[in-house]
């Protein structure tokens, strides 16, 4: 279980980007984090794995307090937190397999990773994850030979290779077409279900979020303004999160859900 208490963040002397954020994510729950650009979504998930340091507050994963760990100790904890990025963030000149295996770096001493001497078990697992995301035939290709959707699948396999307890997902579909977006969201959702992983997904696409997550948290100006089931996301709530707009066309109607194709 992930527990965030009174999390605050400001960059140097800038304004507060996160003001007193508190929520809990039970094991196996998928949380969609929505909100306008600049609401602090990215900062929030980067505070969890300490890619940035929170200014104040507590972040607790199971029984470890992540926010107070030293730089050396946080590395151990990062192994348990998989992260998936908007622009895939693969190392493009490495092979697909190397990218997936790089999820194991936190478990290996430098010389083994330098010589690419991975334990047999890690390699077997990596093949399994590639199979799971449907890229088993591409293991030896260079990452920059793949399409956007395929690259994101490699990103997912890399996160899986970490054997994580929590997934942090930053705009997984922002660079993808609508169909691929759905496939990727569906993949993330089903993987979370299989391994009863919890996940926090930053996402701009509200209908997509409502379709694939268990719970939605709306962030606005660094504060939580909505926390509840996707069905409770009414036009009023959307206005509270994003400001005035005609929301009628944004809500997913039945057609969308059945065809699996959004405009």
């Amino acid at each position: 279980m992930l527990k965030i208490e009174h999390l605050k963040k400001r960059y140097k002397t800038g304004p507060w980007v996160l003001k007193d954020i508190s929520f809990e994510v039970p094991d196996g729950e998928i949380v969609g984090l929505i909100g306008p650009s600049g609401a602090g979504k990215s900062s929030l998930i980067r505070c969890v794995n300490r890619l940035i340091d929170p200014t104040d507050g507590n972040i607790q994963l199971d029984d470890v307090n992540l926010s107070s760990l030293s730089a050396g100790k946080i590395r151990e904890q990062r192994r348990h937190i998989g992260m998936i990025f908007q622009e895939y963030a693969l190392v493009e000149r490495l092979s697909v397999m190397e990218n997936v295996l790089s999820g194991r770096l936190g478990y290996l001493p430098f010389w083994r990773s330098f010589l690419r001497r991975y334990p047999e078990q890690d390699i077997d697992n990596a093949f399994e994850y590639l199979e799971r995301v449907g890229l088993i035939d591409h293991a030896n290709k260079r990452a920059d030979e793949l399409s956007g959707g395929q690259r994101q699948r490699v990103g997912i396999a890399r996160a899986l290779a970490q054997d994580p307890r929590l997934l942090l997902v930053d705009e997984p579909t922002a660079s993808l077409d609508p169909k691929t977006s759905r496939q990727i969201m569906r993949l993330i959702q089903s993987i979370c279900r299989e391994k009863s992983l919890s996940a926090i997904i930053n996402i701009h696409d509200v209908p997509l979020a409502m379709q694939f997550v268990d719970r939605i948290i709306g962030l606005q100006g660094g504060e939580i303004v909505f926390d509840g089931k996707p069905e409770a996301l009414t036009e009023d709530v959307l206005t509270r999160i994003y400001g005035d707009e005609d929301w009628t066309s944004v809500k997913p109607d039945e057609d969308d859900l059945e065809n699996g194709e959004a405009a």
């Binding site: 963030a89 190392v91 790089s102 936190g106 990773s113 990103g155």
Partner: peptide, 25 residues
């Protein structure tokens, strides 16, 4: 930078990050 961030987020050490994220680039 995001490739570097991604490798760091797996729990890689400084030298592993250089080896995996920076040198190939």
């Amino acid at each position: 930078g995001t490739s570097v961030e991604a490798i760091e987020s797996t729990g890689a050490s400084r030298f592993q990050t250089i080896n995996y994220a920076i040198i190939p680039q």
